[in-house]
Write a protein that binds this DNA or RNA. Sequence first.
RNA 1: GCCAGCGUAGCUCAGGGGUAGAGCAGCGGUUUCGUAAACCGCCGGUCGAUGGUUCGAAUCCAUUCGCUGGCUCCA
Length: 574
Amino acid sequence: MNIDTIRHSAAHVMAEAVLSLFPNAKFGIGPSISNGFYYDFELPRSLTTDDIPIITDKMNEIINKDLPFKKEEVNKENARQIFSSQPYKLELIDEIEENMVSLYSQGEFTDLCRGPHVESTGKIKAFKLLSIAGAYWRGDENNQMLQRIYGTAFESKDTLDDYIRKLNEAGKRDHRKLGKELDLFSINEECGSGLVLWHPLGATIRRIIEQFWKDEHLKRGYDILYTPHIAKLGLWKTSGHWKFYRDNMYSPMEVDEEEYIIKPMNCVYHILIYKTRLRSYRELPLRWAELGTVYRYERSGVLHGLSRVRGFTQDDAHIFCRFEQLEDEVVEVLDLALLMIDTFGFNKYKILLSTRPEKYAGTIDMWQKSTDILSIALERKKCAYEIDPGEGVFYGPKIDIKFEDAIGRAWQGPTIQVDFNLPKRFEVTYIGDDGKEQPIAMVHRTVLGSMERFLASLIEHYGGAFPTWLSPVQVTIIPVADRHLNYAYELESNLKKDDIRTEIAHQQGTVNNKIRQAQNRKIPYMLIVGDREMTDTNVSVRLRNGTQKNDIPFSKFKEVITKTIREKGKELNI
RNA sequence: GCCAGCGUAGCUCAGGGGUAGAGCAGCGGUUUCGUAAACCGCCGGUCGAUGGUUCGAAUCCAUUCGCUGGCUCCA
């Protein structure tokens, strides 16, 4: 039996249950969604979580009665009469093109519905209502807000339980929770919501990511720039941001009677640098990268840990090239982007090519040509991709890469965007081999997205247990008794000399307790040192995953961990 | 921003009109320990903030800030 059919049927049963509790309920839509279903209602009062068990009981009653789902075809005129007191259904009927519409009924409830449904309510074996939320009719905030109940349903109790277990598992990996537990970052009320404070350990991870990022960019012919956090309002007027992006920008601040804006983007600064002198075709392409911190206004309700914030650092870069170079450049960026994703351990991803939206800058011809170039580049890299029609940004087509974490959730990753707009607004050109000014081709791209969101994805992907090269503390040395402390210090300075991030568990406490603490902090390597180890310059190694290997030479351990770090290994070795 | 829920010690949580509680963490001791929690003691909160109801508010009401789940949007 199709899972979507079960879920959609469960939505109808839920609607009947709600109808029995609120006879005047107005019904919106009730589809199945990727992990369950929902139904939207307009009700005389707000639902609370207390209503969930009541509705659940009612649904169980309906299911136990094993009522058949009956299908009926009527013409639209009849349908309008049947749903005369249901304004949302009437709106839906008006939008149906055919003259006949189908209705499905079970028990006391009839719904306008394309179907299909299970034969009878008894076929719904396992469901659970999950949450209540507000949702605008048709997702438009100018419309009435309806009340949505989310639920899920599965073929069997077992698969439902499995799903609930997975939800709990996801909760344990939540980067906000782990960020606090592992002391990686915080967001402070006094400081402001959506503004991230990076603690030493979180900052260490970020520093390692940034170092890797810089090294890879330098290898690939990028230059790294730094630009200011504010700029005069006029600049943002020229760029068009003040007109089109103002909702996401902070209010101007006054400096010497001149208005300045805190930057929501880095691109305009890079253009200014480009324009400081004439550029020859010979020096193209220019690849300019910046870890640029930008500030964007986000409505309070959308902020979420590190993944949706108001100040964030983009791993931004702009490529200025000749149009003929675009294809090669995009191939290069794809190569870099895929390397990044792979190195950080994401092995599942989806590539989307977004095409021209309804409102667009540039000409149809430019759009066509650049979209073609993007798809040719994708084919050259042998990347499977899907077209996302009309989802391009107004200034140009783009490639988005969405990667999946360890528990199957999708994250917005690299994005490569062609821009027809800014080069025109700023008159960005180069001098061609004919001595004449030519329009530049400009690409915006990030390969991680933002440091904040990327760290969120890493934390959840690894559940806080980072591969060794990223672990903020790579080794903790646990002396069995105080008389082993000096040996521990010796090992520590030896490891630190080679940039292996090492700590000594020198606090008061038993060996067991120190191990427990190291485990909770998800430190990959624990070195237990006591009398035995000290006499032979050995260490006993315990890995975060519980495996242990006793009395191995320290030099051997160091060799193994050094190799693991150098190779950015995802597994723990010893 | 809108709808709903939640804010009690650094953390996790109990209490729910009559003098603020526990565990962990921290601090001071004792213990010197062999692969996931040694023992004793101490410190710690104007119960998110403001206003109101009340003899009395952490508890009830209003406003506000923050967080959570959605809607919408996105790096």
